[in-house]
């Protein structure tokens, strides 16, 4: 069974092709500013005409536009190919990839934070804090940001714990509030 994994939650793009849970191909585009030009060609490089049986998409949090485009492509694939779609958050990806269960993703202004239990179960809702607040709550450096993805662990986690979703209902998670929500 071939699974396409799409992660565009940040400036970087990561597209992975799994065959029965083993990574058989991947495409990483690092730090391209204008990633909308590169997302689809990167996916095509990995699919390379192969028949896909399942989609896994990272729903964020991170770059609003980046994650939105990944999710749009993923749900459109699921809808048109009529194949299952499962989702995972970027913070879950970090937690399942390491021993650390307090994880964070940083952007220019602050951090998205997720606290997980030993089985990668979420302990409290995700939140976004500015750099100053982050420094305060992370005095003992318990929250880890620079975790390298363990792609097979991610697949196994999704395979075991995530249920298939209705493609129309798949949407990004944003966590960080936007201007009009703060007013």
């Amino acid at each position: 069974m071939k699974t396409l994994f799409i992660d565009t939650h940040f400036r970087d793009i990561l597209i992975v092709l799994y065959e029965d849970g083993k990574v058989v191909d991947k495409c990483e585009v690092i730090n391209k500013k204008n990633n909308s030009e590169f997302i689809f060609p990167s996916i095509l490089k990995v699919i390379d005409g192969k028949k896909i049986n399942q989609i896994i998409v990272v729903t964020g949090p991170g770059s609003f536009t980046g994650v939105r485009l990944g999710v749009t492509i993923a749900k459109t694939f699921a809808y048109t190919l009529n194949i299952p779609i499962k989702t995972i958050t970027a913070l879950e990806c970090l937690a399942v990839s390491s021993e650390h269960k307090k994880v964070a993703i940083d952007d220019e202004n602050g951090y998205y934070i997720g606290y997980f239990g030993p089985n990668n179960n979420l302990l409290e809702p995700y939140r976004y804090v500015d750099k100053e607040t982050f420094a305060k709550i992370n005095v003992d450096n318990e929250i880890v940001t620079n975790i390298k993805y363990n792609l097979e662990a991610i697949y196994n986690f999704v395979d075991k714990y995530k249920v298939e979703e209705i493609c129309h209902l798949v949407k990004p998670i944003y966590v960080k509030k936007i201007g009009v929500e703060n007013d």
Binding site: S36, I39, T65, R68, I73, T76, F77
Partner: peptide, 11 residues
């Protein structure tokens, strides 16, 4: 615009 464009590419 980008949502429409990526959707169109997928189709």
């Amino acid at each position: 615009l980008l949502v429409g464009i990526e959707f169109a590419k997928t189709l």
